[in-house]
Design a protein around this nucleic acid. Structure first.
Length: 537
DNA sequence: ACCATGGTTGACTTA
DNA sequence: TTAAGTCAACCATGG
């Protein structure tokens, strides 16, 4: 008995290494590949125009690929529950296939769809193909908790069998016993909408630098894989945050949307490694980068409220300031620190910035200078990054703000010195902040130090044409290190050891947070420690 | 229970 | 030019 199947694209916008799609084709007489434009994302405001454009390009590419196989992609607007209630009936569907998604919204959504499918006797096939490994299995192998250090993840993975090999993309013959009913009204009913149709004006959009879609993803990957020396000597920390051409692959947007399979990339890199005598190793290597992705995906999948501070058991609870003026200055590239403002400009214009550039601006916003919650930065990145990814975004923001994973809070990036190392002439600043383009290299990272004559000659008066620095980094960073130390002391171990020893119910330790914060803010870390203590006894 | 170890990517000074 | 030491002292993990 062959099925009438819907394959539901969400992430995983690709034909290659798409095991649930492959299963649908193998077990069905009819297949409808669909993508649902969920109003949850359309209305949220969390998706900036660059990422919308990337998504629509990816959908067009997917549709074109299906067209070549005699099929089409169906883009449908509406909430998934409503859409499936209708489609299960209209199309007499007996099977639904999709890729497993571990994010909280996706989990809730998919549970609801599973119920609806059950009510309609629709068989559901879900497969893991967004991550290298099944995050649930990793957590299980680690004793039910997600590994919280990279090394720990590596240890756990070494006990498991390697990532499954990628599944080949379907071909015309995959559609031999299985076709897609395509109506004459397909384009008007199910075509990929334009940006304008989604309520976005493409006015002011910068030209496409990173076109969305599987075709571009595979091309980009192959380009890099052909540079075998480069692949084998890749060390992430040695790549430059501010070179004019990206120093890294910029495959992240494609991995985020699943235009590229992490496993395909992983095995592509492996094939190059096997041809060479020497190659770099995790965490700095290219394989290492995919493992970082895995690390944060696993941590996020196994941690409640991973995207926020409250109720998040891995995040330090820090009394950040509420400072709209500073936050706006950071968001809109007006901090008066050219390196920071150039990065924020590139982010807004192009939707991608180098990993270390993210470090610099994230440290600046949070523990380094502005003392604003990482959640605010997370929100801005979520909107502007092409590769904005729930797990990686939250995880890295916690890392940089020294809220979790990274703890050496006294190591603070200098908004002046850090960029100078790889771009002493400030060409990156000149590109993204043209107002400063005539400044001499000596002053371009700290233009407020330039004598008036130099400012005049450069055609840029600091305080008029370009802002004065909103904080004094030398002073603020030292103050913030102290605040960080204090915040840790106020919720760290302290009196908690004795209370566990007595076996009494732990008493809330005093701290400086407002009383409304106390319930969730002081407890998570301590609770976790105590729970493990109790379980040992 | 306690200590030792290592940690993707700091800045700055000194040799 | 590059490499090591200092700064001040973090946490998860493993023995």
């Amino acid at each position: 008995m062959k099925h009438r199947s819907i394959h539901w694209f969400r992430k995983g916008l690709r034909l290659h290494d798409n095991p649930s799609l492959t299963t649908a084709l193998e077990t069905s007489s009819k297949v409808w590949p669909i993508f649902i434009l969920d109003p949850y994302f359309v209305k949220s405001g969390n998706v900036g125009i660059n990422r919308w454009r990337f998504l629509l390009e990816s959908l067009c590419d997917l549709d074109n690929s299906f067209r070549e196989l005699g099929s089409r992609l169906f883009v449908i607007q509406g909430s998934p529950a409503e859409v499936f209630l209708r489609l299960f009936k209209d199309w007499e569907i007996s099977q639904l296939t999709f890729e497993t998604d571990t994010e909280p919204y996706a989990r809730t959504r998919d549970e609801e769809i599973l119920k609806i499918a059950k009510q309609h006797s629709v068989n559901v096939i879900q497969t893991v193909s967004h991550t290298l490994y099944d995050t649930e299995k990793v957590i299980k192998t680690n004793g039910g908790k997600p590994p919280l250090t990279y090394q720990r993840l590596q240890t756990v993975l070494s006990k498991m069998s390697g990532p499954p090999e990628p599944v080949p993309a379907p071909t015309k013959s995959s559609f031999k016993g299985c076709d897609t009913p395509i109506g004459a009204d397909h384009d008007s009913m199910y075509g990929v909408p334009t940006l304008e149709a989604l309520g976005h004006s493409s006015n002011g959009l910068t030209p496409v630098i990173y076109p969305g879609g599987e075709t571009e993803a595979l091309k980009r990957m192959e380009d890099y894989l052909s540079k075998e020396k480069w692949i084998c000597s890749f060390e992430k920390p040695k790549t430059s945050p501010n070179s004019l051409k990206p120093a890294t692959t910029v495959l992240s947007p494609y991995l985020k949307f699943g235009c590229l399979s992490a496993r395909t990339f992983y095995y592509g890199i492996l094939a190059v490694y096997q041809k060479q005598k020497n190659y770099t190793k995790p965490p700095v290597s290219l394989h290492g980068q995919l493992l970082w992705r895995e690390f944060f995906y696993t941590a996020a999948a196994g941690t409640p409220n991973f995207h926020q501070m409250k109720g998040n058991p891995v995040s330090l609870q820090i009394p950040w300031d509420d400072n709209k003026e500073y936050l706006d200055a950071w968001t809109w590239a007006r901090t008066g620190y050219p390196f920071i403002d150039a990065i924020m400009t590139q982010l807004r214009q192009e939707g991608w910035i180098h990993h270390l550039a993210r470090h610099a601006v994230a440290c600046f916003l949070t523990r380094g200078d502005l003392w604003i919650s990482w959640e605010e930065g997370e929100r801005v990145f979520e909107e502007l990054l092409l590769d904005a990814d729930y797990s990686l975004n939250a995880g890295n923001w916690m890392w940089l703000s020294a809220s979790a994973f990274f703890h050496q809070y006294f190591r603070v990036y200098s908004p002046i010195a850090f960029g100078k190392k790889t771009d002493p002439n400030g060409d990156y600043i000149r590109k993204y902040l043209p107002v400063l383009k005539s400044f001499p290299a000596k002053y371009i990272f700290e233009p407020w130090l330039a004598p008036e004559s130099v400012q005049k000659a450069s055609g840029c008066i600091v305080g008029v044409d370009y802002p004065k620095p909103i904080v004094d980094h030398a002073v603020t960073s030292k103050e913030n290190i102290k605040r960080m130390k204090e915040a840790r002391a106020n919720q760290g171990g302290g009196g908690t050891i004795s209370s566990t020893e007595t076996g009494k119910k732990p008493v809330e330790t005093k701290h400086k947070l407002s009383s409304s914060d106390t319930v969730t803010s002081s407890s998570p870390r301590k609770k976790q420690k105590k729970l493990t203590d109790f379980s040992k006894k």
